[in-house]
């Protein structure tokens, strides 16, 4: 019933998308998107609202019909082989609901019964913090509890790929972090994860690779660290020092600006800035206790990607 999925060839493609397109009337919601998702990876799809993320993943799940392009999920075409695919994938939809008076355990039990293979829903309920709420009706759940229920429902058929669309929307910070751990555990079991999110910290934290969507197209696709390197390669080194100005800091390789505010120093620049600043400080007999570097986040890279795109268009 439960257990790891059959041995998976690393690197094999779980999803292959070529020139996927979907129009709504005059709107090109998805406009020629191509990407692969490898088996066993956590693949992120990020982008501002309306950039076509949901449309894309719902085409992949056979919930919307595409207008153009080729899609293969687990080797199947979701448009024509929906039924064969259905029970092998898990879906947490951005928008959906359950009957108001349906109880948590009944939903899990029902969805487990529908699927030919399933996980023990009691364990899932426990993992996702729903055990205490198992007798509660859907209508009486908080936003975060509903969200967790939908994720648990997406996993109850022990899918080979799970699609999570805005999974942590409505969760409080501690529940979000708990959800991240659980998603990692899901991948550990061998399940491929396609994660749609507009939280950059979440994408950076979880994803092996990220596709950045903008206006129905992919404008960047890489690992989080590569995206950050490419689009936001600057660092900020901070420390406190009581005493004179330190004019020689300007000479550190990569440093582009040194600022001082009272006792607080900031060195901005790129490359391995922290190493150079640290060695210069030590060479001058200064060893601040709070020397630290702030690396750019995916969030900053994301903003930069949006700008670059805007100016090149």
């Amino acid at each position: 019933m439960t257990g790891q999925h059959p041995a998976q060839i690393p690197g094999e493609r779980a999803v292959a998308v070529r020139e996927l397109a979907k129009v709504y009337g005059p709107l090109r919601a998805v406009d020629g998107v191509s990407f692969d998702v490898r088996r066993g990876e956590i693949f992120g799809i990020v982008g501002v609202n309306g950039s076509g993320k949901t449309t894309t993943v719902e085409c992949l799940q056979g919930l919307r019909d595409r207008d153009n392009g080729e899609v293969h999920v687990l080797g199947l075409d979701p448009a024509t082989q929906r039924d064969a695919l259905r029970h092998r994938i898990g879906s947490q939809l951005q928008e959906s609901a359950l009957p108001d008076r349906l109880r948590v355990w009944e939903a899990l039990d029902l969805f487990a019964a529908i699927s030919p293979r399933s996980r023990d829903w009691r364990r899932l309920a426990d993992e996702w913090g729903l055990w205490e709420k198992r007798r509660a009706a859907f209508a009486d759940l908080s936003g975060g509890q509903r969200q967790r229920l939908f994720v648990a429902l997406a996993l109850v058929n022990d899918p080979e790929i799970v699609f999570l669309d805005e999974m942590t929307t409505g969760l409080d910070p501690s529940a979000r972090h708990a959800a991240w751990d659980l998603v990692r555990a899901v991948r550990q079991r061998g399940t491929t994860v396609v994660l749609v999110t507009h939280f950059m910290d979440e994408a950076e934290e979880l994803c092996d690779r990220i596709a950045v969507f903008k206006a129905g197209r992919i404008v960047a696709l890489d690992t989080p660290s590569a995206l950050v390197r490419r689009f936001a390669d600057h660092s900020t080194v901070r420390f406190t020092h009581e005493g004179d100005d330190l004019p020689w800091l300007d000479g550190c390789p990569g440093a582009s600006a040194v600022e001082r505010e009272g006792t607080r120093f900031t060195v901005a620049g790129d490359g391995p800035l922290l190493a150079y600043v640290a060695s210069a400080l030590v060479a001058h007999g200064i060893a601040p206790l709070d020397l630290r570097v702030e690396r750019p986040t995916l969030e900053q890279a994301f903003l930069r990607i949006s700008e670059v795109e805007a100016t090149t268009r």
């Binding site: 919930l63 959906s96 609901a97 529908i114 699927s115 058929n157």
Partner: peptide, 17 residues
């Protein structure tokens, strides 16, 4: 009512025919 609320959508995604 189920269609309007999105329940049918949810059922469909779960593979209910």
């Amino acid at each position: 009512g189920y269609r309007e609320a999105g329940v049918l959508r949810r059922y469909r995604a779960a593979g209910v025919s």
